[in-house]
């Protein structure tokens, strides 16, 4: 249940995210018999049990430390074994809002991939919503299912190994929102349409890295009667914060003077062949300025987010559908 509620203290069996640095985190399941070793030393699980989450934990041999963090879906994305490309937080956030996800929402996701976005979705729709997620790769589906079970998310997530292009989702009149992270979303849109709760408005998102995919997806959404087709791209740009000294032109002039003085003294010393007394160096620290800069290299593209609205079926359309069904 780590992902659905917080605890204060670490207990046996808990999942802890060991934070060594921004790039180096690792998931640990607390087992008093185990120790975790990294280049900063030895960390005994038994030392961690009973500590509060957020504790700065020194290694047993005192060579370094790490932080014991409480799992969140965001931290999980850092430590999940990357079985596939994962979604980034800018996209996750925007999609969650645009699809109007909240406690109680019923949502369809395809494919599951590494299950990292599923964790995020489950967090948002808990305690009374449901996520139906589909993955055609059998091993990936198994691995994700295992993660959901370990993390106490099984009641919220139904995962199925299924080729949705060929077989569809097999769900009708059930979900509020659909998220398609598929190479050919247009082949799943008809089935996705049937999955929506038919008598209310719904939202769909197609997640595609290429513009050609977006164009085909939009044409297909249009064909299937989806409206308000919108496409976005969002990113998070990091700003590195630094402290820089503020030098002035006066400093530049005095820097040259100091250099010239040194040279002159050296020449004098060489000429007289004796060492002149060292003049005391007066160095004044310049005032500091807090600044930020963008990194030299940054993520420039993740995927295009195509959104559309599913329109509720009108009463007269329902009559028509019913009549057709009767004829069948």
């Amino acid at each position: 249940m780590y992902f659905l509620s917080y605890k204060t203290c670490i207990e046996e069996g808990d999942l802890v995210i060991a934070y060594i640095s921004r790039e180096n985190m690792t998931p640990l399941i607390m087992d008093p018999k185990l120790t975790y070793n990294n280049k900063f030393g030895t960390f005994r699980h038994s030392d961690m049990i009973g500590k509060e989450y957020g504790t700065k934990m020194p290694s047993h041999n005192g060579r370094g430390f790490m932080y014991l963090l409480h799992p969140t879906p965001e931290l999980w994305t850092h430590v999940v074994p990357h079985r596939t490309q994962i979604l980034y937080i800018a996209d996750i956030s925007f999609i969650t809002t645009y699809l109007d996800l909240k406690p109680g929402s019923i949502i369809l996701e395809s494919g599951t991939g590494s299950g990292s976005f599923s964790h995020s979705l489950a967090r948002n729709i808990a305690p009374n919503g449901h996520l139906y997620t589909f993955e055609y790769h059998e091993e990936r589906a198994k691995a994700a299912k295992q993660d959901f079970e370990r993390h106490g998310l099984s009641d919220l997530i139904t995962i199925e190994c299924r080729d949705v292009y060929k077989e569809g989702f097999g769900i009708t009149d059930l979900v509020h929102a659909v998220f398609l992270d598929l190479p050919a979303p247009w082949d799943a849109i008809a089935s996705a349409k049937a999955a929506f709760k038919q008598k209310r408005i719904g939202k769909i998102c197609c997640f595609s890295p290429c513009i050609e995919q977006v164009q085909r997806a939009c044409a297909s959404l249009n064909e299937h009667g989806f409206v308000e087709i919108k496409m976005f791209e969002c990113l998070i740009r990091n700003q590195e914060v630094h402290t820089i000294p503020v030098y002035t032109v006066k400093d530049a002039v005095s820097k040259i003077k100091v250099q010239q003085d040194k040279k002159r003294k050296r020449n004098e010393e060489e000429a007289s062949n004796s060492k002149a007394a060292k003049s005391p160096r007066i160095k004044q620290d310049p005032p500091n300025l807090y600044v930020s800069k963008t990194p030299t290299e940054a993520k420039g593209h993740t995927s295009y987010l195509t959104f559309a609205t599913f329109l509720p079926v009108l009463d007269d359309e329902i009559e028509i559908i019913d009549k057709v069904n009767e004829l069948d």
């Binding site: 957020g54 919108k230 496409m231 998070i236 740009r237 914060v241």
Partner: peptide
């Protein structure tokens, strides 16, 4: 951000800017 770093109570303070672009398709 500088204040947070100095205080030592905060892990990994990060400053970010949000970027969003809408397209006509």
């Amino acid at each position: 951000c500088v204040h947070m770093r100095i205080s030592g109570k905060f892990l990994n303070p990060q400053l970010t800017e949000s970027w969003l672009r809408e397209y006509q398709v």
